[in-house]
Structure formats: C-alpha cells, structure tokens
C-alpha cells in the first residue's frame, strides 16, 4: 500500500520538479516569450471581438454591444454592389500579376547576385537595389507621376523607342504594368536578402562535388542552388498567397484617377473611399475586411496543402 502510493507520487513529483527546474533555468526566456504572448493576446486576439460589428449596424453612441444585429446584411450589400465583380477582378488580377512577376524576379535577382564574384561590385549593386525600399510610397508615387507625364523621364525613354508621348497614368491599359513594374523596382533588392541568407547556408562542398562530376554553371544552379532554396521559396510563396486579397491601397490611391478606375480600383481603395467618406460605415467596411480575410485564409490553407503534397514543404 505504502509502496504503491509512493510509486504513484514519485514520478509525479519528479515530473513537477523537472518543470520547475526547467522554468528556473530558463526563466528569462519565458519572460521574453510572455511579453510577446501578451502582445498577441492584447493587440491581435482581443480586438478580434470587434469584428462582430460586421454583423451589426454599428453606431458609436450605442457601442459595440448596444448596436442592433443585422445578420448578413452588410455582406449581402457588398455582394450586390454594382462594382463588386470589377473590384474583385481588379484585386485578384493586380495581386496575381504582382506575384507572377515580382516573385520570380526577386529569386532571379538573388541568383544573379550570388554569381557575382567581385565583392565590391556586389556590395554596390546590393546597396543600390535596397535603396528604393527606404523611399516612402508617397515619394515613389510622386516620382512616378512626374516621370510618366507627357514630358516625363520614362515617357521620353518610351518615345526614344518609338512609343507615344502621353500621360500614361491616364490610361487604364497601362495601370497594371506601371503598378507591377514599379513594385519590382521598389522591392527587388530588399526581397532578395532572405534568399541570399538561404544561399549562404548551402554547403560549398556540394558545388565542388558537382564540378568534379562535370556539371556546368547552369546545372549547378538548377540542381544545387534552386534545390537548396526550395524550402525558403515555398514558404514565402505560401505566405504571399495568403496575402493575395490584401493589396495595399496607399500606392493605388496615389496613382489612380477616374480614368483608370476600370483597372485600378480594388477592394481596399473602394473601402477607403466608402469608409472614410462623410459617413463612416464601420460595419460595412468591417464586413468587407472579414470577407477578405476569409478568402485569404482559404487561399493560405489550400496553398499549404498543395505544397505539402507536391514538395513536402509546408508552414505546418
């Protein structure tokens, strides 16, 4: 009897002791983690409660609790919106084009940088390509508006190659090109950092072995570099896909005008015009935000699943 009890208690005690020991040993790590945890709870999980206003007709004076429930009315309003289809199409197209062009461009750029053997030249190129990342969007857009005017720098260059001289930002057919290409210019250097870090982790012995086996530069890039980068690429790609609906509105708002709404007006800019107009429709815009997040979540989960099946790489 005594023995039994002792047997039952003893491992328990040991277990407890080991947790305590663990806590005592790493106490500061736990404290650090607690701060981060508190941050997420306070600023990311608790505010989620506010999303209920998507199902209410929120009124500041009545508060979140006191505002009347309206069910799915706000969502229905959005789906029935005259511009719903166009907004959705523009958002997805602009996002997908952006992903299709700028994602591979960044990888390609990192690979090219990696091939440069002259350190000084490499450093200069890197610094020059990082710079646009630090220029604020409003300045970038101001430059674009100037450069794309009928006497602007870019327009002059286009003219040299036989193009037309006109205000390119006034024509819907050019908007996506302008948006995507300027986006590449802004982000290519900065985006390549993470790949360069991953590249430095690839074992150099692999290259030596490949050289001995008679593999050329391209073969090495294909079989060693890209394969080594694959986990990073896949992770970033999944994350990017999860953001597909969250197209930043700042740059679009600064670049678009009535002429280009046809291709440039996206969900977030429409919400901006609606939510910050004279009557602030918090509930309606929250509903749209929630809808966006839902689509993003579905995209993220499915991208993750597909990737798991195809490449064995996944976020979870």
């Amino acid at each position: 009897m005594y023995e039994l009890r002792a047997r039952n208690v003893l491992p328990n005690k040991k277990h407890k002791a080991s947790i305590l020991k663990d806590l005592r040993r790493d106490v500061w790590i736990y404290v650090l983690a607690a701060v981060v945890l508190a941050y997420y709870i306070l600023f990311h999980y608790l505010p989620m409660y506010g999303a209920v206003i998507a199902f209410k007709e929120y009124d500041v004076a009545k508060g979140i609790m006191g505002s009347p429930w309206v069910g799915l009315k706000n969502f229905k309003d959005f789906f029935n919106d005259y511009y719903f289809v166009r907004l959705l199409r523009n958002t997805l197209l602009l996002s997908v084009y952006n992903l299709l062009w700028s994602f591979p461009a960044t990888i390609l750029f990192a690979l090219l940088l990696n091939e440069i053997r002259q350190e000084k030249f490499k450093k200069v190129v890197q610094t020059v390509t990082y710079l646009p990342h630090f220029i604020s969007t409003i300045v970038v857009c101001g430059m674009l508006i100037d450069f794309l005017a009928d006497d602007g720098l870019i327009t002059q260059i286009v003219k040299l190659f036989g193009g037309e001289g006109k205000y390119y930002l006034n024509y819907p057919q050019y908007f996506r090109t302008i948006y995507v290409s300027s986006g590449i210019w802004q982000s290519i250097g900065w985006g390549s950092i993470i790949y360069l870090a991953a590249l430095s982790g690839i074992d150099t012995e692999l290259y030596e072995a490949a050289t001995i086996d008679g593999a050329g530069r391209l073969r090495q890039t294909w079989h060693i570099t890209l394969t080594g980068l694959l986990p990073t690429i896949v992770t970033l790609l999944i994350l990017e896909i999860g953001k597909l609906m969250n197209l930043g509105y700042e740059k679009i708002i600064l670049l678009y005008n009535g002429n280009t709404y046809e291709t440039a007006d996206v969900i977030s800019t429409y919400v901006y015009r609606l939510g910050l107009g004279a009557s602030r429709r918090y509930s309606y815009t929250t509903a749209i935000g929630l809808f966006n997040s839902l689509i993003n979540l579905i995209l993220l989960v499915s991208a993750n699943k597909i990737s798991k099946r195809l490449t064995d790489n996944s976020l979870w």
Partner: peptide
C-alpha cells in the same frame, strides 16, 4: 437614411468620376 445613402453614393461617385474623365478625354 444615411447608411442607404452612403452605399448609393459610393457607387455613384465612382461611376461619375470615371465617366467625367472619360468624356473629357474623349475615350
């Protein structure tokens, strides 16, 4: 009336601004 109006207004403003520009530019 305000909620009803703002939804209508957002659509109308978007359309009107777009057409305004197109009419003047001749597109």
């Amino acid at each position: 009336e305000v909620t009803e109006m703002s939804t209508l207004q957002a659509t109308i403003d978007t359309y009107q601004e777009e057409m305004f520009a197109k009419f003047i530019m001749g597109t």
